[in-house]
Design a protein around this nucleic acid. Sequence first.
DNA 1: TGTTAGCACTCCGAAACGCTGAGTGCTAAA
DNA 2: TTTAGCACTCAGCGTTTCGGAGTGCTAACA
Lengths: 340, 340
Amino acid sequence: MLSERQLFILQVLIDDYIQHVEPIGSRTLSKREDMNFSSATIRNELADLEDLGFLEKTHTSSGRIPSEKGYRFYVDHLLSPAALSTTELFSIQNLFHEKLEETERIFDQSARILSELTNYTSIILGPEALETTLKHLQLIPLGGQQAVAIFVTSTGHVENRHVMLPESIQPKEIETLVNILNEKLSGVPLAELHRKMDEELALVFQKHLMDHQQATLFLADLFTWGRKDKVFFGGKTKMLYQPEFKDVEKVRILLDALEEKAIVERLLTSDRDGVSVTIGHENGIPAIKDCSLIKASYSFHDKHIGTISLIGPTRMEYKRVIGLLDTLSKQLTQLFNERY
Amino acid sequence: MLSERQLFILQVLIDDYIQHVEPIGSRTLSKREDMNFSSATIRNELADLEDLGFLEKTHTSSGRIPSEKGYRFYVDHLLSPAALSTTELFSIQNLFHEKLEETERIFDQSARILSELTNYTSIILGPEALETTLKHLQLIPLGGQQAVAIFVTSTGHVENRHVMLPESIQPKEIETLVNILNEKLSGVPLAELHRKMDEELALVFQKHLMDHQQATLFLADLFTWGRKDKVFFGGKTKMLYQPEFKDVEKVRILLDALEEKAIVERLLTSDRDGVSVTIGHENGIPAIKDCSLIKASYSFHDKHIGTISLIGPTRMEYKRVIGLLDTLSKQLTQLFNERY
DNA sequence: TGTTAGCACTCCGAAACGCTGAGTGCTAAA
DNA sequence: TTTAGCACTCAGCGTTTCGGAGTGCTAACA
């Protein structure tokens, strides 16, 4: 049977390891505020816990890490599941209310197929990201800090989203806020809401709102919505199989860059006909300097409305890939013009 | 202006580099059948091509690799796009015919949200993979090698799929084939079609068909359909952000394992209530030995019909994650029981 | 009897070193 | 113009060295 102290040490050690992912020694533990024993004492306890199989050393003179048995014990006895945060709850509930449109499905699938066939990562820019603008915005308080944001778009689409208001904001201020937003942001493409916010509205808010910092944070969150769903990726993990990405760091940098809507738009926006190839530095974005990008746009009524693309190392299999993009983009064009 | 020989060398070098991703020296090139010059001559040409900016060295005494300018030239002048293969064409055309059902959408989204909230990879086993069985199969030749395969499932669902017949097969044989398949496979769960094929039918075909090898290959392809879409992943790349996966090789092994339907089913099938945790070796699958798996099942009429799960390093944030899975699985259960 | 201080010992990991082999540039001969 | 020969370069790999973090053990202390 484990003593109180052993339980405590085990718990602290596992918690710590889960966070920092590094072996923990007796000295580190003894330095904690709530640890009133010397490192030597702790050392003894650690040795005991190791004998019991709850801890391991990575080598003779390293600190301890939890063993599988340790985790097992932790999960079974030391754990009180954390309650869900309100954001988490909201996300889950929203799941079932969102609708995915037929066109979105096609892009999603296209992205998958494209990367499946080529073994490169594919990026597709859906049409709305370029076209649809915000028409009207409303914010309906639900009591407490909760509220619903309602977005009406130029296409008549209505979307709503649960949000958390910043603590410090006054009802009066919410009104001001929404007014400013509507005035400044109606007509702005959804995709640009976020940027616009950052660049142009920060100053305005400083004038009109008490706690503009909190408000800015809140709005940044609010407009992550604009980013939603109009960019479709396929095969993000394909890059791992390219030898030039054997360094995880590189993959991360690239993936992080692709998460940035601004970068993706800059990369993919194109008004050229047919397939175009961008090699290495030509794209002008440092994080993607050793990648090539091959893209083709699809059109509606002879106007380019979106782009499909593949991204891979500069030494791409250009041969295979170009034909594929060409075909797919033509199919998409055809689809749009038949359907609408 | 580049000489014929220079063009040739450039082309060969880039093609080679695209394939093997290693600097290429004069000697390697001179060894090719179609290269009738000594390494010294080639060395001179390479030096010239480098002066012109088409090639680079990674260090003073390395072989050459293409520069960005080299790729540019290659793409613009040396490239004849390869024609699409028939498979590729089919995949693209099928894109627009497949329907994604509402439930599938929910799982797909759930997987995304789950991994977004936790920063771990999520795996969701949709209900059909476990439940639905094959009722009837038909194969309709379209002329040439093309055909449509029609699957009728126990739930009355009908799906069709373009396939390519093996070259050597006779019309008569197709009939035999379909008969055997229907006899042996009706009542078999969709997810097991593939396995069943491999294990039990290979012998039968050897007896009845001329070219059973080709036929087996063809069927393997045909039944990749059974695997389709019933497993949903979210955040496959999240693992890259965990320090224990800083070695790309590890990530690959894990991801490859998760592509194996058999493994995923073995991992996720569970008849326990509530959230269960599997730590490290407990799961019994070598490729996943340093991962923990947290799963919860959802039910329909008090019967478990599917599983949602998260996979991450053994030092997972169990605390946060358990509550989440619990909530989401309950929501799914509720959804199913309300809806059907 | 439980706790603590001190000390010799262990071993990882980073930095420094040396060697090998593939590949180059240059020169001179064919 | 092409080729052979030779001295030179340097990445990559294995080896060595060394400091530091952490241990186990012993002996003194409360």
